[in-house]
């Protein structure tokens, strides 16, 4: 069975990513990269070896001319539960 026939519905794509590194986009300008160990129908996730990237957009005072400065904060976490309501997308590893 090739990959395309194994994927019948969206969650199959996530299932095939178990134990692989995935990219997760979250609400609040946050992104995660981590190894996927568990998920459920709410898109609650459990990831290990996680790196979180937060984009902090500073709309400098006087929201008119000045271009907003974008700062990136990164942080690492060993084992993380992610609540599904914040998940925008889960993307399988690139190959």
């Amino acid at each position: 069975m090739d990959t395309s026939s194994a994927i019948q519905e969206p969650f199959d794509l996530i299932r095939l990513s178990l134990s692989e590194r995935v990219f997760v986009k979250l609400r609040g300008d946050r992104e995660l990269s981590g190894i996927l160990h568990a998920y459920d129908g709410h898109m609650n996730l459990i990831l290990s070896d996680v790196e979180e990237t937060i984009l902090i957009v500073d709309q400098a005072d006087g929201a008119g001319e000045g271009q907003p400065t974008v700062n990136m904060a990164k942080r690492k976490m060993d084992m993380l539960f992610v609540r599904g309501d914040g998940v925008i997308l889960v993307s399988p590893p690139s190959r």
Binding site: H37, A38, M79, R83
Partner: peptide, 29 residues
């Protein structure tokens, strides 16, 4: 109101989790 919970990695059996997740998704389909 929870965004994340950081878990103690030594207490999480990742192999067990993956097997349980596959089983649950199979039961769902």
């Amino acid at each position: 109101v929870v965004r994340y919970v950081q878990l103690p990695p030594e207490s999480v059996d990742t192999q067990l989790l993956e097997d349980a997740t596959r089983r649950e998704s199979a039961a769902q389909t």
